[in-house]
Structure formats: C-alpha cells, structure tokens
C-alpha cells in the first residue's frame, strides 16, 4: 500500500470537498465486526437485521426473494456511482467507473444479436453511452450515437465471432477494448495512482486469465491474443510458463509484488482444484492497495478507495446472502468473505 505514495500524493486540493464527504460516508461501510455478526446470525432475515441495527439504513430489504434483493444491491451500486460524479471535481472518475457497465451492455447486446434472441436482456442503465444508442448500433448498424472507438470494437468483435463461432473469443475481444478505452483515458488524466491501480488490476487479471485458459484448455498460441497488454508484468512471461507444471509457476514470480497472491492461489488450486482462493486473494490485494485512500485528505485515492470499498461491501453482502440462503455453514462463508476496507 505504501509503495505508491510519492510527491504528488495528497496534493490535489480540489478533492478536499470529496474527501470531507467521504470521511463521513466511510462510517457507513461495513467493518469486520458487522460482517461477523451477520455471518453468525441464524438465518437470512436475522443477518439482514444486523445491518439495520448498525444504522446502515441504506441496505433495506423489503422482500427476501433473490430478484428484489438483487435490485436493492444494484440500486446501491448505482447510487454509489452517482455519488462519485456528484462529489468529484472532474467527471473523469465517473467515466472511468462507468465504462465497465457500457462494455457489459455491449457484450450482452452482441451475444443476443449473434444468437438471435429477442427477450429482455439483463442490461445496466448506468454507462457513459445511452442504451438506445448501443441498441441501434448493435442491431441496426447505426453508429451515430456512439464514439468511433466503440464502433471499432463492436465491428472487431462481430468479425471475430463470425470467424471462430465462439462467444468466448468475442467477449475476450470486447474486454480488451474495455482496457484500451480505460488506458487511453488514463493517458489523458495522467494521475499516477490511477495508473498504478489499473496496472495492478490488469496484472492480476492476466494471472487469473492464464489459469482460466488452462482450465478451458486453450492452446498456448492463443494466449497472446487473450492476455491484456497494459500491465507491468510482461505477458510473454505468462505465455512462457503456461505449459510448465502448475507448482513451478510461483517460482517465476518470486521478485514480484504478487508473489504471495500467486503462491497461495496456485497452492489452493492444486490442492482443492478451485480458484476461489485465488480470486479472493486478488480482491484482497486490490482492496489493500486502495486502503491508502483512508489516509489521504486531498487526492482521488480517497474517492477511488471509497468507490471500490462500497463495491466490495456489496460483494460481501452478496456472499453472506447467498450463503445464508443456501444454508452454507458459518465457517464456509467466513472462508470466502473478502477483506473489509475500514
């Protein structure tokens, strides 16, 4: 966490207002105590009551069926994003965080088009681009309402699908488009911390993608196409070790910051044949990186930290709700719960 402190940290006074507000909002983030209390409650209803008892009125669930719970959580996520746009002095953070939803929508629309489905699709209406514009672009070929860059991604993805008949590769191509967009914008913003964060995210993603390719039995030659290029870790290194036995993987990263993540993740993968631990380690690593936001008074670290902390909270709540609903044991839930920000 302390690695990314440099002379430009804590100098952006225009974030003073945002940080002041966030300092107060941080009180309403989940802490370990609340999470443990929630896990230890007998059933779903009681564990949701713990939220209300701790003044977290934001999480009010009227009905307990999965779609209305999901709706509540999606709404909180929406509010979180809106808060970012409200408090930050420049719109770029909001845009950065919104691209994710845009690209999700593009994926869903493209998949629907390719398989000729006409039902209601699970879309998010919180992207940078209007849903109508995307709809027109994907289904009718009218690209007036969307940027040229996005048009290129859509075209590429469509061509890729027609060539290989694989939705997987189509999505991979859109995912790469997502990171291209992000890093293009990061160049414009030119903030060290954002670069650092997104590069770390890409590195960790590349690691997990390599593992997933292994599970999906994708050939080594295709890996170069799938990996995302913007990270600090060289993708060539990952391609080189791809065919090596699993237990030797972590040796190649002994000097890297991600050694702990890789070592434990791979170990768990070999022992339990599951990537859950790896996923959890990655989430925790990123969250830990963001914790610097708690200590900055003037800087976007604070805003970014809060945004992701809230998303992390939603993830934890989802884990608890899903776990309680399917009556997983407390120990099981505790094993897979993510770290907390505060």
């Amino acid at each position: 966490m302390l690695k990314n402190i440099n002379e430009s940290t804590n100098t952006l006074e225009e974030y003073g207002y945002a940080c002041g507000r966030i300092r107060d909002l941080e009180k309403y983030l989940l802490n370990k105590e609340i999470i443990h209390k929630m896990i230890e409650s007998q059933d779903l209803e009681k564990s949701l009551r713990v939220l209300a008892e701790n003044n977290l009125s934001e999480y009010s669930f009227e009905k307990l069926d999965s779609s209305s719970i999901d709706q509540v959580l999606v709404n909180i996520s929406k509010r979180n994003l809106n808060l970012i746009s409200e408090i930050s002095p420049y719109p770029y953070l909001f845009q950065l965080f919104s691209w994710k939803h845009d690209f999700h929508n593009i994926k869903v629309l493209l998949k629907a088009k390719m398989l000729g489905k006409k039902e209601l699709f699970p879309l998010y209406d919180l992207g940078n681009l209007s849903l109508n514009g995307l709809h027109a672009a994907v289904f009718e070929g009218k690209y007036q309402l969307i940027p040229i860059k996005i048009k290129r991604f859509i075209k590429q993805a469509e061509e890729g699908y027609l060539k290989y008949d694989s939705l997987q590769l189509m999505e991979v191509s859109i995912d790469k488009g997502y990171y291209e967009t992000i890093f293009e914008q990061l160049e414009d913003i030119n903030q060290d911390f954002l670069f650092y964060y997104y590069k770390t995210e890409v590195d960790l993603l590349n690691l997990i993608i390599t593992c997933r390719c292994k599970i999906r039995e994708i050939h080594k030659s295709k890996l170069a196409e799938i990996l995302i290029k913007y990270g600090q870790l060289s993708t060539q290194k990952l391609i080189d070790i791809y065919d090596n036995p699993l237990h030797s993987w972590s040796n190649n990263f002994q000097k890297s910051d991600y050694f702990m993540v890789i070592e434990q993740g791979i170990k768990h993968w070999i022992e339990k044949n599951s990537l859950l631990k790896f996923e959890q380690m990655i989430d925790n690593y990123l969250l830990n990186l963001l914790k610097i936001g708690k200590y900055t008074t003037f800087g976007l670290e604070c805003v970014i930290g809060y945004y992701y902390a809230k998303e992390n909270d939603l993830k934890n709540i989802r884990i608890i709700i899903n776990g309680k609903k399917n009556s997983l044991s407390d120990i099981m839930i505790k094993k897979y719960i993510r770290d907390t920000y505060v």
Partner: peptide, 9 residues
Amino acid sequence: LATICMGEN
C-alpha cells in the same frame, strides 16, 4: 460457491 458473489443480472 463459484457464483456466490455474482448478482442475478
């Protein structure tokens, strides 16, 4: 467990 932190959407 795999889908434990994914929403319905």
